[in-house]
């Protein structure tokens, strides 16, 4: 499998996406849908898209299909559950007088190819139970693990840490 980072060519769809993201952020910051505010937002978003659209390389790599919003919501839901579990796990470790930690640095391979996909994966790993992504080199993530069970090899670690997030993110990003 080819593991190099892929930044797909910038298309018209990409500009439409940048415009949509800018407008969404504007509407959320303004907090209402009044005609004049919306018009001003459209003008500003169009201006930003025209001037800087080609530099939003981070937004490339999104798959375009009608189910994408659903997949993003599914990922967010899964992520929030993992975040709460991570905090409960951490709270128990911190409160326990014996401080049950067994830290290790683990290398994890990823099959995601887009920059945004790898960024989201690294972020997700940082906020889930007991793991912290330290570095990303090509397709390898260096992960700090608070409690590495004895006798774990790299494949088991990948399955345990990254596989489920990779599946969720891979549905809407390259």
């Amino acid at each position: 499998m080819n593991n190099t980072l892929v930044t797909p060519a910038i298309s018209l769809r990409h500009y439409a996406l940048v415009f949509g993201v800018c407008l969404l952020l504007w509407v959320l910051l303004v907090g209402n849908l009044a005609g004049q505010e919306l018009l001003a937002g459209m003008v500003v978003s169009a201006l930003v898209t025209l001037l800087f659209g080609s530099r939003f390389g981070i937004l490339t790599g999104l798959r375009f299909s009608p189910l994408v919003p659903l997949y993003i919501l599914g990922y967010l839901g899964y992520f929030m559950v993992a975040l709460v579990r991570a905090n409960l796990d951490l709270a128990l470790r911190v409160i326990a007088p014996s401080l049950p930690i067994r830290p290790a640095l683990v290398e994890v391979k990823t099959t995601l190819k887009s920059p945004l996909g790898r960024l989201l994966l690294a972020n997700s790993i940082t906020l889930t139970p007991g793991t912290l992504s330290v570095d990303v080199r090509d397709d390898t993530l260096l992960v700090h693990w608070v409690y590495c069970p004895p006798g774990t090899d790299a494949q088991q670690a990948t399955d345990k840490i990254a596989a489920s997030f990779e599946r969720h993110i891979g549905r809407f990003l390259l």
Partner: peptide, 24 residues
């Protein structure tokens, strides 16, 4: 609890885990 972890954990990387997750 996160700040307690920040105080109790033995090295930088473990402290970082406690601080980030709990604060977020």
């Amino acid at each position: 609890l996160g700040s307690l972890g920040l105080m109790r954990m033995p090295d930088l990387y473990n402290r970082l885990q406690a601080g980030t997750k709990a604060a977020t």
